[in-house]
Design a protein around this nucleic acid. Structure first.
Lengths: 323, 323
DNA sequence: CCCGTTTATTGACAATAGTCAAAATGTAAT
DNA sequence: ATTACATTTTGACTATTGTCAATAAACGGG
């Protein structure tokens, strides 16, 4: 009838679930290499709408773009790190800069692949882990439990400590068990009392069941996370440093060999001890920065780490260290 | 110095392996959402070169774009197919047309996910399987053996029968065991003699070890694959049809319930029998087209199928059938 | 050292994709 | 019905990406 341009004006598409539409669009675009114009025509919508469909499909996790993890492990620097520290895997984020967002992306992309149904995953908290938690894309893994490994603190950063575990759990469609306790109390007695609380005991029982864990190391500089977050005072820090501390894992100080240094703070702390991190099927250390190198090495020598995520400059620094 | 435009003319990048470069480019592009201009600048090359890097990264399988398999299984039509035919999974390729390339892409994208190290995978041959084999992207899975399930024939198509298994094996980095025999011989005696040959016996021993299989069904129309490829004469076809044949699996005729119809041809054939396809951990049926519907249903009722890949129109036709 | 060959790279142009404010549609309350 | 509000879609504009023939560097004899 020669008046095709008179558009049958839009209606919502009720006859088909939204996901089906997104999936169809994504299929044509990514698998059949049709362009947005062709898809728009096939669907009878504008191209801009197709752009939206594709965006939504990506947001919902219907489309996943991933770099082959095996390729990272083939990198020279990664191979050398694995050999030097006996790691299962080292993801070295490319780039010449020390980049927190970079390692967070790297860890976020890798983590879901390392999890299986039934896992109980311990999660520390801090800037790095929080950043990781935000870069994770939605991807449900059945029957996973995320367990906060260290009590919360009023954070010096913009995020709440428990949001690390909570974010991760939400994005993975997992259960979450947070600590309803501060990381450090004012006295050993207070800590003891709290430790008797059923809700805290339950958390510790869960901590005994973790088979995988994700954590960073903190440095022993004065501006480090342990101090900033109020877990340790500058004086505490000095005490531990005098006893050989080179890094912090889950709020606990470790020496150059990775051994847990039990000091005055420890009896007032609520959280996992490093020893419980040994022998897990996945111990993912996510850290970068030259100030962390000593601590990272210690953590690896201590046997807490099976999977390392860091960036190229930090990786190189780790390789340059003496063993 | 004001003369930045004077380009330091290109040299090959020797200091770094090619893959590292590709991986770095892909990282920045896909994970850090930098555009090609930024990457070109960072690398000190032209943007066109970055385009090439990214293309190569995709070709080498460093980048993988995948649609969430779970999403396909959430589709109404897929759920209904699974229920009706007791399948583990039904991948229904979106679209309103019957599309061979479509199902080939669908199967090619799904197949690697279903394989694990150590698998021995039986592969039939035909137009569909060949198409699948060409759409597969390179992705190595350790210690996989691909076994041709049906003897070869001078194919009426452009491809050689054994190229189905060979292509698949190559793309998966797997071993391949092809049949050095025709699918059908002129007499039962000839078949018997051939069956005694060590090289053929070895192949059959391997066929007994397959734990997964990929195949299509053929129709019983006069223009069907079995006839075209010379396995069956039109007269043979009529004989089997008179005995209730509705489809062909691995060159063997099956009835509406999926039972293998043993007829005059069978004793002259070299290849797996349908019964050996039952009980595998993956039996992937890849087929589409209205002429195949009866055969597909028969194959599913016969218990040969755990995973179905088809297109939307064919899927709908399968659902419309009486059981 | 020269010269043909191969490979990697580039610039200019064409094609494709993303953005955003405005308009159309759906929804829910009055 | 009518209105106010939220959501979806759209067109026009801009940004980004892909193509391809031309060109420079590396390679491999003779």
């Amino acid at each position: 009838m020669g008046q095709e341009k008179k558009k049958a004006r839009r209606r919502y598409r009720p006859d088909e679930s939204v996901e089906d539409t997104l999936l169809r669009a994504a299929w044509l675009y990514y698998y059949e290499n049709q362009n947005q114009n062709e898809i728009a025509e096939a669907f009878g919508v504008s191209r801009a709408t197709v752009v939206n469909y594709l965006q939504q499909a990506r947001e919902r996790g219907l489309v996943e773009i991933r770099l082959d993890p095996a390729a990272f492990n083939r990198q020279r620097i990664s191979v050398e790190l694995c050999r030097k520290y006996g790691l299962q895997e080292a993801v070295v984020v490319p780039g010449t800069q020390v980049s927190l967002p970079g390692v967070a992306i790297g860890a976020a992309r890798r983590l879901p692949d390392l999890l299986s149904p039934g896992d109980v995953v311990g999660v520390a908290w801090g800037m790095t882990i929080f950043s990781l938690s935000e870069k994770l894309t939605r991807r449900t893994i059945d029957n996973v439990t995320i367990v906060q490994m260290v009590g919360s603190m009023a954070s010096p950063y913009v995020f709440a400590a428990e949001s690390c575990s909570t974010n991760i759990a939400r994005r993975l469609g997992a259960r979450v068990a947070n600590f309803y306790a501060p990381a450090v109390l004012s006295s050993a007695q207070a800590a003891d009392i709290l430790m008797q609380e059923p809700i805290i005991r339950t958390q510790f029982e869960l901590l005994n069941k973790i088979n995988k864990a994700v954590f960073a190391v903190g440095s022993c500089e004065m501006d480090s996370h342990v101090v900033q977050s109020g877990i340790a005072s500058p004086a505490d820090l000095e005490t531990y440093k005098a006893r050989g501390a080179v890094g912090v894992v889950c709020g606990r100080f470790i020496d150059a060999a990775g051994a847990h240094i039990v000091g005055p703070l420890d009896e007032r702390m609520i959280g996992i001890t490093p020893d419980a991190l040994r022998g897990l099927s996945v111990g993912m250390l996510v850290s970068n920065g030259f100030d962390k190198v000593a601590g990272m090495q210690a953590a690896m020598l201590g046997g807490y780490v099976t999977h390392l995520v860091t960036d190229a400059p930090t990786a190189q620094a780790l390789l340059n260290l003496d063993t």
